[in-house]
């Protein structure tokens, strides 16, 4: 009987937590970036690093990047034309400046003519990480600033809040 009560209580707590997360997600806050929902994009853009949520860059950035995949930060990330087209369509439709909700705050300080290629060079990203101690970047499991998952354990689920 106590087990039953306990599991009901746990279930209710989980439900409440889920509702809170959902609420936060819908608010489109700075900390929540919907994870990539297109399986092809997840697969092709998620093998060398996490599949970065499309809401982390504006549409023009994705368009530029998708046109230069054969030299992607010094690596060859090229895919066939049909695949590239599908991925571009997905990323553009979910970009920071096209997505529903208030994602534009994320682009504060980015000029409308610029197509930044690095999330980690956006003024907002730099500001949010101002207080991260230098030693944290050189930790062995971090390897790169682009390895969000090393510090944000829930990044694959879209959460980047303080941890």
């Amino acid at each position: 009987m106590t087990t039953l009560i306990r599991s009901i209580a746990v279930g209710a707590a989980l439900f409440a937590a889920g509702a809170v997360m959902l609420g936060r997600a819908q608010a489109g806050s700075d900390e929540y970036f919907p994870p990539v929902s297109d399986p092809l994009t997840r697969q092709e853009c998620g093998s060398c690093h996490m599949a970065f949520p499309a809401g982390l860059l504006p549409a023009r950035s994705w368009q530029k990047m998708m046109g230069e995949l054969d030299n992607h930060f010094g690596e060859d990330a090229s895919v066939d034309a049909a695949t590239a087209k599908q991925i571009t369509t997905y990323l553009v439709a979910h970009a920071a400046d096209t997505a529903r909700g208030d994602m534009r705050r994320w682009l504060r300080g980015v000029s409308a003519s610029a197509a930044p290629q690095r999330i980690t060079e956006l003024p907002k990203w730099v500001r949010e990480h101002r207080e991260v101690s230098p030693g944290d970047w050189t930790r062995k499991e971090v390897a790169s600033k682009a390895n969000c998952v090393a510090c944000h354990v829930d990044a694959e689920r879209g959460y980047f809040e303080d941890d």
């Binding site: 093998s47 790169s144 998952v149 090393a150």
Partner: peptide, 9 residues
Amino acid sequence: GRTPVGKAI
């Protein structure tokens, strides 16, 4: 294994 960005393979 591990990519240069730090993702497990």
